[in-house]
Structure formats: C-alpha cells, structure tokens
Amino acid sequence: MADIDWHYFLELLVSGVTKGCIYALIALGYTMVYGIIELINFAHGEVYMLGAFTGLIVAGVLGVMGFPETGILLIGGVVAVIYCSAYGFTVEKIAYKPLRNATRLSPLISAIGMSIFLQNYVRIAQTQDFLRYPNLIPDFAFLEPISDILRPSGFVIIVTSSLVMAVLTLFIKYTRLGKAMRATAQNRKMAMLLGIDSDRIISATFIIGSALAAVGGVLIASHTQQINFNIGFLAGIKAFTAAVLGGIGSIPGAMLGGIVLGCCESFAAGYLSSDYEDMFAFAILILILIFRPSGLLGKAKVQKV
C-alpha cells in the first residue's frame, strides 16, 4: 500500500460526495418529518421523482421558447420547488392529518399507499417509459483543468446542496419558524401549551422537506439525464438509510449520513466490486447501528412516560 493512487481516490471521493449530496437532500425530508411527528414518510421518494418530472416539463416548455440552458435550470428548479411544496402540503393534509391521533402504524400504511398512488399516477398521467433529460448544466471553463475529477454537473450538485443545507441550518437555528419547529420536535405538547400552532409547523416541515427533495430531483436528473416514474423508489430507500445512518430526527445527521453513504458506495464500487456496492453500504449501516443505535449524530432518546 505504499503508493496510493490519490488521483483515483479523489475521483471516487468527489463522485461519492456528489451522490451523497443528493441522498442528503432527500434524507433531510425524512428526518425533519420524523423529528416532528415520528412518521416515516414513505411517499417522500415520490416527491423527489415529481420534482424531476416538473423540471423536465418546464424545460420542455422553456426549451421551445428558446430560453438559455442555465435559465431553464433555474426556472425549472424554482417551479419544481413550488410544485413539490404544494404536493408535500397536500399529501400531509390528505394522508396524515386525519390520522394524527391514530396508532403509529396507520399513518405508516397511509404513507406507503400514498407512495404507490403517486408512482402510478405519474405512470398513467405521464408515461412509463424512460425519458431523456436535457443537459442543462453548462461547461464551466474554470473546471477544465480538473474535469476528470469534477464534472460540471457534480460541481453544481455539490455547490447547490451545500448552499441549500447552509440556508436550512441558519433557518432552523435563527428564524421564529425554525425555533418553533425545534420546539415542536422536542416536545409537541409543551410547544402547543406555549402557543405554537403545531398544525402549521407540521405543514411547514412537509413543505420544506418536499422543496429540498425537489431540488435533489432536478439536480440528479440533469446529472444522469434520464428519468422515469420509478426513480423515487431506490433513491428514497437509500436516502432513508442515510437518515437512519446519521440519526433519524437529526438535521446535521441527515447531511452527514447522506455523504457517508454516498462515499461508502463510491469506494465500494471503486475499490471492491460494484456487484457488492449495495451490500457494502448496508453492512456499514448495520455496523454503525450496532455501535451507535441512534445513528452517527442522533441523541439517545429517553422514552417520555
């Protein structure tokens, strides 16, 4: 092991971080919702898929009108964020709010049902074929010297995700709504007693989570350049894994979990065998959970009686 090929290592690291950023963006939605109402929102992967589709439809329309590529990407991203936020909001109102006081299993089943509904709705309303996604990310001249390590799409994904995550962290930490969210996550009953409208907080959580997933959807679609109605499934499972890995309920945990998972997969594919990529990623998950049952950054919770 005297001469480690650092260039190759860096390549794998960058592609792992790229993939990890996408996982992190989706994982944030899982973890925020879990933090507030202790629900695994299985329909969340579908919101990511809807984001990618919205981006594609907007790109199709704007492309005909002759917009520049970067403009299409930005507008497509914004429209996807708004559209998916509306979806997140509605899904919560339809599928979870009526079950707020039911047993914990009921909203879980409702979430699985919502996921199946959204997948099939897109399959019927759009298409079940794979669709080509236009390459909307321009070639940055300043990336030319390191183009074999960092591709423009990877660069855009990493920068955008970092920005979004930084904004989210500041938002949660310093704004009124962010503080109210944290308070609700800590103790919903107490927060309500202190005058926080928990329904509003829950809606806000779903909206923010969906917006992040939409950003992830648009970014990954412009990176891999193809989508279909089923892309949310595997991405959702991986992101959920990342959320658990980082400690479900913890926002920095979701970011870290996503990047750790992405890098694990990338190194497994690069140094071992891509045949075992998934196996390796989940083996890491099991190992971490054995030694840290509440995840990397999760706090061991004392059961409130």
């Binding site: 891999t224 991405a235 891509s274």
Partner: peptide
C-alpha cells in the same frame, strides 16, 4: 455488475 435503477454509475465508469 451494477444495480439497475441506481442513482449514479460514475464510480463504476471511473
């Protein structure tokens, strides 16, 4: 081998 439907195959190509 690769996983069909995977998010990104860049490491394999690398």
């Amino acid at each position: 081998g690769l996983t069909p439907g995977g998010v990104d195959y860049t490491p394999i190509i690398q």
